[in-house]
Design a protein around this nucleic acid. Structure first.
Lengths: 237, 237
DNA sequence: GCGAATTTGTGCGTATGTATT
DNA sequence: TAATACATACGCACAAATTCG
């Protein structure tokens, strides 16, 4: 009688994810060595290694031979730009200033319902912001956070850091993959003004949806950019 | 005295890649089972599995439990659109018609030298083509192939299929990763005409460089598109 | 419909190599 | 140098999926 249809190493991986989610293991901290972990969870070292392989592939931990295994700090230097594929034209990384223009809370719009798999009555935290560098506005972004996926976040309206990596870490949400869809469109007058470009200019529209480790959509980010001195770089494996 | 600095499973993986490259194993064919392979190459089953894991992650083989392990057909349905991230607006795959407008051979331009790591005297095969679907022109592309990376390709000018996956398979070149860089630019008059859009329109510029398994740049593809009824979709792991 | 044969997937345990502290 | 921890390598047993008689 086993409806444990999941392989053991996946169950173990999920258990380890739980430790991170619950805060038993803090970001940046070292976790117990593989042999102790295997003994503690009652599995073989090989199974434990396979579970850790999975977590490493999911960018939840990093392993250093001779040193140990560490919980990746999603909000730190390694993790916080995972979903930002924009680069300067010379290929160097962009570390922009973020300025929040507006914040609000409300029920999910039609688009938010669709992209975030929400019901009409679900609450959404929103922000509009711009990323600038050396006085140049790189991108305008509308951000929508599915409140119910971040237990406790309601109490924090008005002081939210809308970087999804920080939010996830703060509320014990484990990040998974993301999907970004690029298209071309004419800017609205408002966005044209913010980006300091002519009205009705054609710009790149970047729609990003970030999912949790378990596959629930967490955040919708719709960006508009004319890519000033910048490009968008994709590595295809 | 071992300057085999590579782990054994990597050496084994390279040996298996050699079988595919040399045509000993044909695309789509099944390869020997893991136990026989391990015995034949004189390694343990675990080491062989790890080597096969690496090949699978590189999209060179696919494994089917109960059936066997198969050489991926790069030019077939699974492999040929690996580097095409454009989709219809509704998310469905695009299987366009390709029409070659022009073909030529010459020495590498400055840009080709840079992007393909070539010398000034190295030869390049070029093609200009458009991809259309239902009468709508989706994208214009300039393609440059580094001839010296495809031994024997010189003899085939004029009848080349410029799909890199086909070329690679034909000449025993194993494909690796690719990098695509997106930017915005005004179209040239020629491209505006081909795409049937106003002159000086702003379009998406897509510059793709495809590398071999061993890391050599093989092909440069510079596309221009106004994304008619289309979008560009990136999965971020 | 069912069971045998085949093949990959999972799991266990051990020993040794290599990088770090 | 010694201790620690991850990486590699070996080998075996069984589970699960597929195929075929």
């Amino acid at each position: 009688m086993q409806l444990n249809r999941q392989p053991l190493y996946c169950q173990v991986a999920n258990e380890l994810v739980g430790f991170i989610s619950k805060g038993a293991w803090k970001p940046g901290e070292v976790i117990p060595n593989e042999i102790d972990l295997a003994r503690k969870l009652g599995v073989s070292t090989g199974t434990m290694r396979k579970a850790l392989d999975k977590l490493e592939a999911s960018h939840l931990i990093i392993r250093r031979q001779g040193r140990g295994t560490f919980v990746l700090d999603q909000a730190g230097f390694d993790g916080r730009h995972r979903f930002d594929l924009m680069r300067f034209a010379d290929g160097s990384s962009i570390h922009p200033m973020c300025e929040t223009l507006d914040e609000s809370v409300g029920v999910a719009s039609k688009e938010e319902c669709k992209e975030l798999s929400l019901d009409e009555k679900d609450r959404v935290l929103r922000a509009a912001r711009v990323k600038t560098h050396d006085g140049c506005t790189l991108v305008y972004e509308d951000i929508s956070i599915a409140a119910k996926r971040f237990p406790g976040i309601d109490r924090e309206v008005g002081l939210v850091d809308y970087l999804v990596t920080s939010l996830a870490q703060k509320y014990g949400v484990i990040l998974g993959q993301a999907i970004e869809q690029l298209s071309l469109c004419e800017v609205s007058d408002k966005v044209a003004d913010v980006l300091s470009i002519p009205v009705r200019s054609v710009v790149l529209r970047l729609q990003l949806v970030v999912y949790s480790f378990s596959g629930e959509p967490l955040m919708l980010r719709t960006g508009f950019s004319h890519l000033p001195n910048a490009k968008y770089v994709v590595k295809i494996e």
